[in-house]
């Protein structure tokens, strides 16, 4: 459409007037500019690859940490069930009462197995294992409590249900206190969540720097093309038209940088794979290192593209409108 000459149709739209065709051409043009800017990246390979590498490495680090968290979680989920609850019997309880307690415990529906370890047996065991042997003979009385080892049924060995069972057992009159052997697991989980938090923090910092780096690269490229932009403005280009190729450059940086990160991670996985299977062999455990799933991979790429787009958008918004064709 012409502003000054109402009768003068735009050179572009004088043949196609339908809305669909207009949109089709707009999309076609944007795509054309996309391909064009990919060609531009290809022509300035070195500079572009450096930016892409920065983006890729910056994405690799948080993604690796994420994978570490994911794999540790996978390992710990295998141990999540409480296999045993140790109940310490009150000191000085007569044998008879202890025996009746064991009998009572055996009747609990939540319990599949009960083993009684009397304090004498425990002391004997301790003598053998610790190597103090004779020294322990000098003790006046046996300092060890009697222990009842309880194995919950499958249904009651989940962390929460096992905890409930423990509370119930501790309320038994004869019991001093009980211990659940999943406490180490809870500590691990706490550590894991700490790690997860730090992944988020580190990722946030790195991704911010990625946006700034891409923004700066695009700014340099805008300055480099200053004259070209002036000429384009002289022949009637809108800011929109001028900024599209730069936005595309950001998108391409994102896509290529995302793939770069993916390749880095795959290489790392391959490198660590043999070492990890060795460790797993020593522990006689079945362990498969988990890589990125397809969903996670697409997320990585989408994130990279968004970062690239946002970085270039910041520069484009700021600088393109300041370049004016002031000198003829």
């Amino acid at each position: 459409m012409s502003l000054l000459f109402k009768s003068r149709m735009s050179q572009a739209s004088n043949t196609d007037t339908s809305l669909v065709m207009t949109w089709y051409f707009i999309v076609l043009n944007i795509m054309r500019q996309g391909v064009h800017s990919l060609g531009e990246i290809w022509r300035t390979t070195t500079a572009s690859m450096m930016t892409v590498a920065v983006l890729g490495v910056s994405l690799t680090l948080p993604t690796t940490l994420y994978l570490v968290v994911k794999n540790v979680q996978q390992v710990s989920s295998g141990f999540e069930n409480a296999s045993e609850i140790s109940l310490f019997v009150k000191q000085g309880l007569p044998d008879k009462e202890t025996k009746s307690l064991v009998k009572r415990l055996k009747l609990y529906p939540e319990i599949s197995d009960v083993t009684y370890i009397s304090n004498e047996v425990a002391l004997e065991e301790f003598k053998q294992v610790s190597g103090f042997g004779q020294a322990l003979d000098y003790l006046d009385s046996n300092p060890l409590p009697s222990v009842i080892s309880v194995t919950p049924t499958k249904r009651h060995s989940k962390p929460e249900t096992a905890r409930k069972l423990l509370i119930k057992l501790e309320s038994e009159r004869e019991i001093d206190f009980g211990k659940l052997d999943i406490e180490w697991l809870e500590r691990l989980n706490a550590l894991l969540s700490l790690l997860r938090e730090s992944v988020i923090t580190i990722a946030f910092l790195l991704l911010t720097s990625v946006i700034l780096i891409i923004g700066n690269t695009i700014r340099l490229s805008i300055m480099d093309k200053k004259e070209e932009i002036q000429v384009m403005k002289l022949v009637g280009a809108t800011n929109q038209f001028i900024q599209t190729p730069f936005l595309w450059t950001g998108i391409w940086y994102g896509i290529i940088g995302g793939f770069f990160a993916y390749i880095c991670i795959e290489l790392m996985m391959w490198w660590l794979g043999s070492a990890i299977s060795e460790v797993a062999g020593v522990y006689q455990a079945e362990f498969l290192l988990q890589g990125l799933s397809f969903f996670e991979f697409t997320n990585l790429i989408v994130l990279a593209v968004l970062l690239g787009l946002f970085g270039s958008y910041l520069s484009v918004k700021r600088y393109i409108k300041t370049i004016e064709p002031d000198k003829i």
Binding site: S2, E228, V231, G236
Partner: peptide, 19 residues
């Protein structure tokens, strides 16, 4: 609207201003 005004004006410069 300035770009649309410029589309109606052909401009020629002393130093050509080619890309």
């Amino acid at each position: 609207q300035v770009p649309f005004v410029r589309r109606d004006i052909g401009m020629i410069f002393q130093n050509h201003r080619l890309l």
